[in-house]
Nucleic acid binder design. Sequence first.
DNA 1: GCTGTAGTTCGACGTCCATGGAACAACGGT
DNA 2: ACCGTTGTTCCATGGACGTCGAACTACAGC
Lengths: 108, 108
Amino acid sequence: MPTTSQSRPRDDVSKPVKLDAIAVLRALADPVRLDLVRQLRESVAPIACGAFDVAVAKNTLSHHFKTLREAGVIVTHREGTAALNVLQEDELDEAFPGLLDAILPRRG
Amino acid sequence: MPTTSQSRPRDDVSKPVKLDAIAVLRALADPVRLDLVRQLRESVAPIACGAFDVAVAKNTLSHHFKTLREAGVIVTHREGTAALNVLQEDELDEAFPGLLDAILPRRG
DNA sequence: GCTGTAGTTCGACGTCCATGGAACAACGGT
DNA sequence: ACCGTTGTTCCATGGACGTCGAACTACAGC
């Protein structure tokens, strides 16, 4: 069976049903993805997929975003052709309080 | 390139030179290993490898302990035939303050 | 409509990894 | 010395994952 076969309003994508510790840890346990999350966290405004400073191809980047989405770490809003990514900081902090601060200490 | 190619005194094993976020996250991002860490954290005394409540073969268990050791999450002391495992809670809390509390909330 | 830009999806490839069976090493007890 | 216990190491296997090229979709502008 598919990993997420929950009845999903097909209009929407990546409804983060419930945050799973293993999934979140696995999502963060990759250098590229952890860097994406870091950039998202250090920015106040949402960032489009193509605007990230990363050294992988676009399709690979898309795959990483999908992983982050399915883990509930980020949410993506489509705005015209752009896909604006937002870190689910509140949800993460509620499920795993202090996790982001632990692995991504914000300077300042 | 190897993930951890830090110059390591070959004489020693699993000296947790410096805790790497990716390595620690990957070590914790496995159901079996996270459960091992949970059991270690809930116990006051060190636990021998064979005394864990887990559903994998002993060689697999040994492999998981090796992963945790190389990530610096645990340290193993040999005592006769037993191998007593200790969670590196202080070191982890210094490197990533609040990480364990975030993903392994202790019922208290 | 056509072109370009932004993301996604589809194979495919190579690597890493979790798992277990079997053999081996280290230690303790009798 | 001989076992039994405890871990480790070796090898193989099946699956998951990161990566990329190429094709495809969706949207904006001309």
